[in-house]
Amino acid sequence: MKLLPVIFTLSAMVTAPAIAYNQPIEYARVTKVEPIYRTIATHRPQQVCHTETVQYRGHTSQDKTPVVLGAIVGGALGHAIGHNKSNKRVGMAAGAILGGAVVNDVQRQNRQSHVVHQQHCRPTNSSVEYRNVLEGYEVSYKLRGRHYQTVLDYDPGPRLPVQVRARRGY
């Protein structure tokens, strides 16, 4: 007995599409087709940028090699100029100090400035771009003297196929 509901369900599944397939199709006259649009907003972030001019002067490194070399050369000249032993020592010390100081001054004067252009950006309000997207069509049609409306995902053209179902009388 438990097999009877299973057989009934299977036979209903097989015969229902056949009944629906046998229902007649009529063509209704399309009276109006209106596209349905949906507006989509797209936010685009923006940023405002400006260029700033920055001036830098001189070297950032503190290289002491030229000063030391200037002191050595100045010391050698002071030593060569001196006449006796004590004069040579004093001349060498004075020449070393003077040579180092002269090279340091020349280095300070030769430091040139250079200009750098730096770009700075900051975010601002975003712009909004709107576009319309087609969602479907609102279709009005006339069938057997009566007016109907439906929404379709395509434009049916001048005729719309309609599957007519027979209704039992009361």
Results as ranks from 00 to 15, higher is better:
residue 63 D to C: 00
residue 65 T to A: 13
residue 65 T to P: 07
residue 65 T to C: 04
residue 66 P to I: 10
residue 68 V to N: 04
residue 68 V to F: 15
residue 69 L to H: 11
residue 70 G to E: 07
residue 70 G to K: 09
residue 70 G to I: 07
residue 70 G to H: 10
residue 72 I to N: 02
residue 72 I to M: 09
residue 74 G to I: 04
residue 74 G to A: 09
residue 75 G to F: 07
residue 75 G to N: 03
residue 75 G to R: 01
residue 76 A to K: 07
residue 76 A to F: 12
residue 76 A to R: 05
residue 77 L to T: 11
residue 78 G to Y: 04
residue 78 G to M: 07
residue 79 H to L: 09
residue 79 H to F: 12
residue 80 A to D: 10
residue 80 A to W: 10
residue 81 I to K: 03
residue 82 G to N: 02
residue 82 G to E: 05
residue 82 G to I: 01
residue 83 H to G: 06
residue 83 H to S: 12
residue 84 N to H: 13
residue 84 N to F: 07
residue 84 N to L: 02
residue 84 N to W: 09
residue 85 K to P: 00
residue 85 K to L: 09
residue 87 N to Y: 07
residue 87 N to S: 15
residue 87 N to P: 00
residue 88 K to E: 02
residue 90 V to K: 10
residue 90 V to R: 14
residue 90 V to P: 02
residue 91 G to E: 06
residue 91 G to F: 02
residue 92 M to K: 07
residue 92 M to Y: 07
residue 92 M to C: 10
residue 92 M to I: 03
residue 94 A to C: 04
residue 94 A to E: 00
residue 96 A to M: 11
residue 96 A to Q: 01
residue 96 A to T: 04
residue 96 A to Y: 00
residue 97 I to Y: 10
residue 97 I to C: 08
residue 98 L to A: 14
residue 98 L to S: 13
residue 99 G to D: 03
residue 99 G to S: 07
residue 99 G to C: 04
residue 99 G to W: 02
residue 100 G to F: 00
residue 100 G to R: 01
residue 101 A to D: 01
residue 101 A to S: 12
residue 101 A to I: 04
residue 102 V to D: 05
residue 103 V to D: 10
residue 103 V to T: 12
residue 103 V to A: 11
residue 103 V to L: 14
residue 103 V to G: 08
residue 104 N to E: 08
residue 104 N to Q: 15
residue 105 D to K: 11
residue 105 D to Q: 14
residue 106 V to H: 08
residue 107 Q to D: 06
residue 107 Q to V: 02
residue 107 Q to M: 13
residue 108 R to T: 06
residue 108 R to Y: 05
residue 109 Q to S: 07
residue 110 N to M: 09
residue 111 R to F: 02
residue 111 R to C: 04
residue 111 R to W: 03
residue 111 R to L: 04
residue 112 Q to L: 04
residue 112 Q to R: 11
residue 112 Q to D: 05
residue 112 Q to Y: 06
residue 112 Q to T: 08
residue 113 S to P: 03
residue 114 H to W: 15
residue 114 H to G: 07
residue 114 H to V: 06
residue 115 V to C: 09
residue 115 V to T: 15
residue 116 V to G: 08
residue 116 V to L: 12
residue 116 V to I: 11
residue 117 H to P: 06
residue 117 H to W: 12
residue 117 H to L: 12
residue 117 H to S: 13
residue 117 H to G: 05
residue 117 H to A: 10
residue 117 H to Q: 13
residue 118 Q to F: 07
residue 118 Q to R: 15
residue 119 Q to E: 15
residue 119 Q to M: 12
residue 120 H to Q: 14
residue 121 C to S: 05
residue 122 R to L: 02
residue 122 R to M: 08
residue 123 P to T: 11
residue 123 P to E: 09
residue 123 P to R: 09
residue 125 N to Y: 09
residue 125 N to S: 12
residue 125 N to P: 01
residue 126 S to K: 08
residue 126 S to H: 11
residue 126 S to T: 10
residue 127 S to G: 09
residue 128 V to R: 10
residue 128 V to M: 08
residue 128 V to D: 05
residue 129 E to K: 11
residue 129 E to M: 04
residue 130 Y to F: 06
residue 130 Y to S: 05
residue 131 R to Q: 11
residue 131 R to L: 01
residue 131 R to S: 13
residue 131 R to E: 03
residue 131 R to F: 13
residue 132 N to R: 13
residue 133 V to T: 09
residue 133 V to L: 11
residue 134 L to W: 04
residue 134 L to N: 01
residue 134 L to I: 06
residue 134 L to S: 03
residue 134 L to Y: 02
residue 136 G to R: 08
